[in-house]
Every structure is written in C-alpha cells, then in structure tokens.
Amino acid sequence: MKWSEICIHTTNEAIEPISNILHETGASGLVIEDPLDLVKVRENVYGEIYDLDPNEYPVEGVRIKAYLPMNSFLSETVNQIKISINNLMTYDIDLGTNQVSLSEVNEEEWATAWKKYYKPVKISKKITITPTWEDYTPLSSDEIIIELDPGMAFGTGTHPTTVLSIQALEEYLTENDHVIDVGCGSGVLSIAAAKLGAKEIFAYDLDEVAVESTKFNAEVNKLDQQIVVEQNNLLNNVNKKADIIVSNILAEIIVQFVDDAWDNLVDGGLFITSGIIQTKKQLVKDKLIQQGFEIIAVNEMEDWISFVAKKN
C-alpha cells in the first residue's frame, strides 16, 4: 500500500493543536522532529543509547509528520488539514513558517524505519536486550542477553514499565519457579524469567499478533520448550499454581483480574504488576490490599509505578 507523508513546518506552540487536527483527520502515525530533543538532558541509568542525527531536524521550528493513505480523497483531506491549521491563527497561535509538503512513502519502508533507533540496551544489573538484527558482544561472562524482535507487538523491552518488571523478576525470582506472564506482548518478560532460572512459563495475550510474536522470540532465544504461549483473555479459565505472576498492562486492566491472580498463586507467591501511571497508583494499591495481598515493594521510574505484592 502507498502512503503519503504530510509534513508541516511550524512552531513548538502549534504542536498540540496541529497534532490534534491530524489525528481527527484519521492520520496513521505521527512524528515530531523538534531540535530541542538534540539538547535534552536524558537519564542514562542502564546505558541507553540515544542516537539522534542533527541532519534529520530543522534548524529552527519543528516538523510534524503524519501518514495518509494515497486514495481518491487525499487531495481533499490535505486541503482540509491546511484550512484547519490556518484557522488556528484566529486563536493567536504562532504557526511560524507554516509550510506544508507531501511525499510518497512505501509501507514496507515505513514499517521498518524504526529499527535504526532500536539498539542494545542494558536494562538491569544482569540483563541486556538486543534486537535480533544487531551484532552484540557481551561485556561480562554473567551478562544475560535477550534477543528480541517486537514486530507489530507491543514491547521493545526498553520502556520504563518493562524495565521495572524485569528488575523485579531479577530480584525476586528463584531457580525453578513457575511463572505466569499476563499480557505477554513481544514475550520479553517470559524470556527474562526463563533466563533468570524459571522452570516453566505460561504466557497469555488476547492479541493474536502478540501470541505469534512471543512464540517467535521464544524460539529465537531457544526457550520455546520452557515458554508455553496461548491466546487468552487475562486469566479467564486459567487454573494453575505459579510462584510468580507478572503483568505489564494498564492499571484499569490489572484491577480486573487481581482475584484470578490470587487464585493462581501458591501461598507466599508474588504478583508483579507494572504499566501503572502515577495517577492510577492508588487504584491498583487499594485493589491489591482489598484482595489480601501484602505490598512488599513499590518501585518508580519516570512517571511509572510497579508493585510487588505477596499472597499471605
């Protein structure tokens, strides 16, 4: 399929309203090229790589890019976007140069362009995540390497919520533990659990793409015999006894299966939850305590929260 990239050269002030216009128009994907990102101070806790090319950024102002399908309505859609953007001036929003340009993009190139920004990342004391297409030499003999190709599934392994989950697994998982991964995405948490010594992992996700992605990544890491992957809605109709249940999903989803997590844990088992934004912290905490869990650890990274709760 052919796509058209619409590029608007504008100002920082106009980023939010123009982004909203593009979303309402039905644009798929949004890219913001802001030269301020080149000088932004970033945390470098575990050796993250921020490989930004100044040549891809405007000297001044920002470029907002969105992607529209090339069909018979394209010209009409672009004209409507231009009119809506120009109308922002009635609200005294500075549009800067307000240049709009179009270029053709091949879908295959677009779908894989992100790979050049995905580099090996050390996310905990022991674990480094590296994309399957990158050559990486371990820095020490005890370094654990996870090879990952997220494909179309959520989870490159570098998001704070994933990092928090893996750090909790590294601290609390013991050899031969049985683990359940709820909402496995690309399978990164299941693979981390296996490499940290878990005996058996059951990975569940409702999304068929995620299930296939987890199966693929388990095979790449030669762990497909340890990791059992199934399509399932959370823990519905699951009846197992796990030492650890780990779930990196949204807070609103976590609270829906706290009781099922309790039922599927051994006495003394741990429920590791992540994907919780600060504003939803109390919601999850209250639900865990109400169920009978003892919260033994609360970890934070940026705006995200992770709980480690024990079934007493």
Rank of each mutant, 00 (worst) to 15 (best):
N98I: 03
I6P: 02
I8C: 05
E13Y: 04
L265T: 02
D259L: 09
V298F: 08
Q278V: 11
L30N: 04
N176D: 12
S72Q: 07
F216V: 03
K199H: 10
L52Y: 08
L38Y: 06
V179C: 04
K82V: 13
P138C: 08
G292F: 01
T161Y: 00
A210Y: 01
Y67K: 06
S101C: 12
Q99G: 07
E60V: 14
E302R: 08
A218C: 01
V209N: 09
S84L: 09
S84M: 10
V179W: 01
Y50A: 10
G29L: 05
L139K: 15
C7Y: 04
A14L: 06
L164K: 01
S141E: 15
T90V: 14
G61F: 07
N248H: 02
L95Q: 05
Y172K: 01
T90F: 15
E48P: 03
V59E: 10
E212Q: 12
T214S: 04
N217I: 00
S4T: 15
S84F: 05
K241Q: 14
I254P: 00
L102A: 15
F271G: 00
D205C: 03
E33L: 15
A193L: 00
F202N: 02
K287P: 00
E107K: 12
F73N: 13
E107H: 13
F154W: 07
E143P: 03
M1N: 14
G47E: 03
V59I: 14
T90R: 13
N232H: 09
N232Q: 11
E252P: 08
N237W: 13
L206D: 10
G268I: 05
V100N: 06
V59P: 02
T10P: 03
S186M: 03
D53S: 10
S213A: 14
K240D: 01
S274T: 04
T25A: 09
M1F: 14
P54W: 10
Q231Y: 11
K241I: 08
I81V: 14
L235N: 01
S141M: 12
N176F: 06
G268N: 07
L234I: 04
P131N: 12
Q256P: 04
L283N: 03
W110R: 08
H159P: 02
M152N: 15
Q291L: 11
S141G: 08
L22M: 08
N20M: 13
R63I: 15
Q291R: 07
N98Y: 04
G96D: 06
K126R: 14
N248Y: 00
M70C: 15
I191M: 02
A203W: 01
S72I: 04
V284M: 02
V255H: 10
D243F: 00
I305T: 05
S186K: 01
A27I: 04
V41N: 11
I295D: 04
Q282L: 12
N98F: 07
I272V: 05
D53P: 05
K199W: 05
S19T: 09
R42C: 11
E109C: 06
V246C: 03
E300S: 06
I249S: 02
M70H: 15
D286C: 03
L38K: 02
T25V: 12
N86Y: 10
T112N: 15
A111Q: 14
C7L: 11
S19G: 15
Y67E: 05
L148Q: 01
V39T: 15
K82H: 09
Y91W: 11
D207L: 14
Y91E: 13
V258P: 00
A192S: 08
D94T: 07
E300N: 08
